[in-house]
Design a protein around this nucleic acid. Sequence first.
DNA 1: ATGAAAGCGCTAACAT
DNA 2: ATGTTAGCGCTTTCAT
Lengths: 329, 329
Amino acid sequence: MATIVDVAKRAGVSTATVSRVLNGSANVSDKTKERIMAAIEELNYNPNALGRNLRRMRTGLVLVILPSISNSFFSQVVKGMEQTGAAQSYTTMICTTRSNPDRERMFLNLVRNRQADGVILISSCLSAEELQSFCLQYPVVQCSEFIPGVDTPLVSIDNEHAGYDAAQHLLKLGHRHIGVIAARGTHSSDLRLTGCRRALAEYGIADCPTAYGNFTYQSGYGAAQQLLQEHPQLTAIFAVSDVMACAAMRAGQDLEHRVPETLSVIGFDNITMSYVVRPSLTTIAQPRYELGSAAMQQLIVQIENGKQSHNCICMEHTIIKRESTAAIL
Amino acid sequence: MATIVDVAKRAGVSTATVSRVLNGSANVSDKTKERIMAAIEELNYNPNALGRNLRRMRTGLVLVILPSISNSFFSQVVKGMEQTGAAQSYTTMICTTRSNPDRERMFLNLVRNRQADGVILISSCLSAEELQSFCLQYPVVQCSEFIPGVDTPLVSIDNEHAGYDAAQHLLKLGHRHIGVIAARGTHSSDLRLTGCRRALAEYGIADCPTAYGNFTYQSGYGAAQQLLQEHPQLTAIFAVSDVMACAAMRAGQDLEHRVPETLSVIGFDNITMSYVVRPSLTTIAQPRYELGSAAMQQLIVQIENGKQSHNCICMEHTIIKRESTAAIL
DNA sequence: ATGAAAGCGCTAACAT
DNA sequence: ATGTTAGCGCTTTCAT
């Protein structure tokens, strides 16, 4: 492995001059530069970033921590982060926790160790206390799914309002018996449920049967079964994720419902599955790419300018009306 | 930021002794160790991995390079890599290329730079030549989807044989007019197609209508439409991915077919979607976790013991018979 | 059991 | 325009 010293010797210059060429700084004569380039070529030299990083005390790496890559919602969010990071010379890497706090701690330690410059959390599995003590010292942003009560910048939609809009859509179609499939322990689900209940309350409806899933198809199917069996009067279901909404459609069909004729279903996220299923799924869409992009922007500001006032960036959601919801007969 | 020097001063020892404690080496008296631990605590000291990495000339990081996280097939493969890596103190990070060769080069450069110890490629988008020159110098393994003619260890299934088995399944059900939805430019698809044709040939069938998609639902739908319209005698379709197989089922239904009564469909990969759709999809399953685990094992051997003879590890596939294939009427 | 000191590869402040 | 040199934080060999 050739080092900068080898290149310098071969080109008959000092390491400083080689370094100048490597970093594209001015003030190197063309012919010196040529000699150095030739030496680099001949020696098949690659700069060792370990030395550079130690010297500069930064790596240009940022981590995105999420539970799993199997959730297709994240794909576009991450793309927004990657492209925005790349535009400012940061390399984005994805770290999966599988909801294991020890794995998450291990990745945060990479930032403590200075092997990465900062971290974006999507759906952290640590406590607010633990996260808070970390984020006081290191650059952190939360995106989309978040832990409340932690002083990080947050980029998300207004989940309460989105839940309100989902319920409004059903209410305006005439539905008065609406069930919800929520997810325990995620703050966004709580907010969506709160918004849904606020909309129902405006129509004088106090009763909102709720069952819980964990974002898997199976759990959504079970939750829907439970709702429909315990509350046969239900004419509509709002699920806080598309996967669970699709499962609810199937569960409804298996219980002799027809969607949307006797059962309307609305989901959340607008993933590919939502327009592939039959009937296609009405859902709430988030600006995924923009969420990721804004989160990365916030992180870079923090890395380069230090801790900021912790603003919360709220993005617009939209409702996408498809075949799975219809006016009550 | 406290450094090892600060800790050493505070504990009244040399940095060497602090280093010994940090790395759990023996030969430090209990009371010295206690003083050092106390100093670390008081100073809120975190070892700076940049210094350590430079000194050791390794980082403990390995990269998994894949086109996108939206392909749910990869999720379990990556889990196998992560767990096997973690068991030997390697941290796995996921890097997405979005099929952009420049992004892939950027990640490979992280290995050239020594910011990562090695790399596992799933579905590289570089040429065999470029990959070959890289893998001569650095630890690389290919897993699952691969570029042929590159001297890396390869962990995969026997795709030709799997294609053969898929076709055999249809042939044994009595099908004689079988179409294929393949994917251009991926070697595994070519092999599956070859295997399929070999099975057909054994039954004296020379004709194998083939259309091409790019693994998206939309492309699969279009390919199936084309096949069924140009070859109305087809009674079965083999798609080289589940997503395209699901699209083929839908396309068939939209062309007045009933699956499996008038059209059998078999897919590949056994992703969640394959048992969620109706009818559930017959498919070929790969041992995903094991593929990932074995690939990581190979990589670690390479990192720690240098380049090996480049073995190819071939894992067993299985056919999962569900509702989408049936005997011809 | 502990310390002194060299040095990993690079950058950047300072000098010329 | 180019060179000299200190030093980033850590590990490790060699002494003692």
